[in-house]
Design a protein around this nucleic acid. Sequence first.
DNA 1: CAGGCGTGGTA
DNA 2: TTACCAAGCCT
Length: 324
Amino acid sequence: MTPAPTPVADLDPQVIARLHRHITEWFATAQRDLPWRAADCSPWGVLVSEIMLQQTPVVRVLPRWLDWMRRWPTPADLAQAPTADVLRAWERLGYPRRALRLQAAAQAIVERHAGQVPPDHSALLALPGVGSYTAAAVAVFAFGDRQTVIDTNIRRVHARVISGVALRGKSLTAAETRLAERLMPKDRALSVRWNQAVMELGALICTARSPKCAECPVAADCAWLAAGSPPPEMAPRGQAWHGTDRQVRGAVMAVLRAADVAVPEQWLTVAQEISLDDAGSTGPVKQLEKLLSLDAPPDQRRRAVDGLVSDGLAIRTDSGIRLP
DNA sequence: CAGGCGTGGTA
DNA sequence: TTACCAAGCCT
């Protein structure tokens, strides 16, 4: 028996044409002036920005990206850098495994692509830390390819404007992908602008929390607004933070970033009064105090250290734990 | 495939 | 203050 096709609302070509025009025209004047969108920004710069922007707001990425590109302007530069330097330069962007994978991606680019960021989606997808979204984003934003870009902003805009519902599921569905493909302009150059513009609309106007519908260029065509802005059916299950392993991992990483020598494992895992004088004036005293202030049980802190080591974010030496 | 993975700003 | 949220990826 043939499975019932997922219903997709009929798309009025007239409406779609209006959306294309209104959203791209809005984008032409409202877009933010971001350095990775500059005409002379390299594909490498675009890739770095996309990795940094995974789950991290633009305002926090901006200064890190500028420093990063000045320090490692090409994949080859990052590929040969000490990994500890890479992790420290990542600072507090969060998800430090992204920094690790970005360097691994740079090394793969040097080895497999002669140091040039590959232009095609499949080669990009094969790079560490590059998933479906990032591969499409780089292919489109760095190389002008006609690919369907689907991030959380675009999903939210499509769900509201076309489907008339608030985005609920965390995972991308086949129906959402099909919808995004059907909405793509046929013209390549226009499709690039469309991807950028819809994403920007989701970032600036059609935001998750308090959408600025009064300023929206397609409010007149928005099914969600017409339906009275209904809330999502399923409430999101909040991500716990206080007291979690992730919090402890983060605190341990902060210690390792601040330390210029290996940190005795006892300092990280055992609750005790440590003679912090030994850490020296430039040592991780402040970060150690913060780790201790979490009051996490020793087994949790051991688990955090083990996790960091097994993830390659830290290594165990005779003298203690340090960045790789 | 649901859950794990950092961090800080905002409502 | 707590909880959500921010251009996801990987297992």
